[in-house]
Write a protein that binds this DNA or RNA. Structure first.
Lengths: 232, 232
DNA sequence: CGCTATGTTGATCCATATCAATAAGTGTGG
DNA sequence: CCACACTTATTGATATGGATCAACATAGCG
């Protein structure tokens, strides 16, 4: 794996505090690959041979059952996915596909488990990361069970606005059809939910969103830190 | 904390392989309390001061938003809850209440974090446990996004039958109203879903379930190991 | 430039929630 | 131990959120 990729990976919380020797050992077995868009990287049920790190591009984690399919989450640089499967040495519970041209680092799962046993700071980082992921899924689950689809959309827009630095205008980072799937609704329904939010100060032009009055949107969205704040 | 409780806690995967000294250190600050039914042990948003261990009875983890409430999961002996909040030292994302008279051990979160840094086997156990929990929530999330309510019920019944040793007859371990909430539906809807499963060989008498022909139920439930097998 | 995938809108259908009434338990205190 | 109160479960009627189907517009893309 080219040395030039090291700093990016090293900068992740997961790898930041481990010793140089252990990091080097991890990188020894790792390699980086470039993938075109829409390539299925892993499939639900496959053995978890590699921990994946998205260096550029983006990856969709999705799942299918009985002819239906749903997006579970999106991984953007720089971040890892399928950490839990790697730790447990179990099969993947989700499939993954590139959304665009992407560079992905692959680190052999057995190396991750081996270094975990050697390097305490790495172990600490993994458990912190895993706890964060766990809490994110809990939040997504609460979102889905407690809110209607337009409430989910309204809160999603508020989160994205925060992410964009609080500006009144920002762009959706997804195709709407995949946003719909992430939010647990159909594309048609998403269109209508957007239309319903016009009345609360949301303007939509393609993927460009304008929120004229955040307070007004918040009054109907009722965001909660325990669902919507992904930093805690 | 009474010595008599030690063996039960010690037997958990989480505490099984740590050194005696570290286990003793954890137990030093811990205490056990008896709670009557329907006591709220923790509330969403509270700081996570203690890791909880259910020694007897059972505990409902639930969450509320905007006047709605939903059961997220049930903790039965012997198991811990709110491990992720303890690890991250963050606020609870769920509330917890006793469902029946319960004995709960409370272990100060800071002790858990401290011993994590000292005892590698404990660290390994925590990360394994957390990865398992993570994967359970992913499964629950897939269940909710990919299945209709009666498909969820059918698969739930198949899982419970497996849990009961595969017998054709077994008892639900929940009030139906809480089972409905866990499955993400209303009690009325659960009644109708049960009625709908009569046609597929499911008999219901109070909380006593009879599955006359598992194969027949499986044909409509289509269980998947990546949603329904909670051991992987 | 034309093809294909995506997005929107309308009409309709279906799953699920809500509301209401009743029945069946369950627990409590006299 | 029974009567009463209260919660839970079931059933029916109805409302509604959301899915599906179909048509069309639009935007990317080769």
């Amino acid at each position: 794996m080219p040395e030039s990729d090291y700093p990016e990976i090293r900068g992740l919380h997961l790898f930041r505090n481990m010793t140089d020797a252990h990091f080097a050992a991890l990188m020894r077995g790792a390699y980086v690959q470039n993938f075109p868009p829409q390539i299925e990287l892993i499939a639900e049920g496959d053995p978890s041979d590699f921990l994946h790190v998205v260096l550029s591009g983006s990856v969709d984690l999705f799942s299918a059952w009985n002819g239906r399919e749903t997006s579970m989450s999106t991984v953007r640089p720089i971040a890892t996915f399928i950490l839990a499967a790697t730790i447990r040495d179990g099969p993947y519970l989700m499939s993954a596909r590139t959304l665009e041209k992407s560079r992905i680092a692959l680190i052999p799962s057995q190396d991750v488990r081996a270094i975990f046993d050697e390097d305490h700071d790495f172990a600490r980082a993994i458990v912190t990361e895993l706890a964060l992921h766990f809490r994110s899924v809990i939040k997504a689950h609460k979102d889905l069970k407690l809110r209607t689809s337009s409430e989910r959309l309204a809160n999603y827009l508020l989160r994205q606005q925060t992410r964009a630095g609080g500006d009144a205008e920002f762009d959706l980072r997804f195709e709407k059809r995949r946003l719909a799937s992430l939010l647990g609704m159909t594309p048609e329904n998403l269109s209508r939910a957007f239309r319903g939010l016009h009345a609360h100060g949301v303007r939509v032009d393609g993927s460009h969103i304008t929120i004229s009055d955040r307070g007004r949107l918040e009054r109907i969205a009722r965001p909660s830190p325990f669902i919507d704040d992904h930093t805690i």
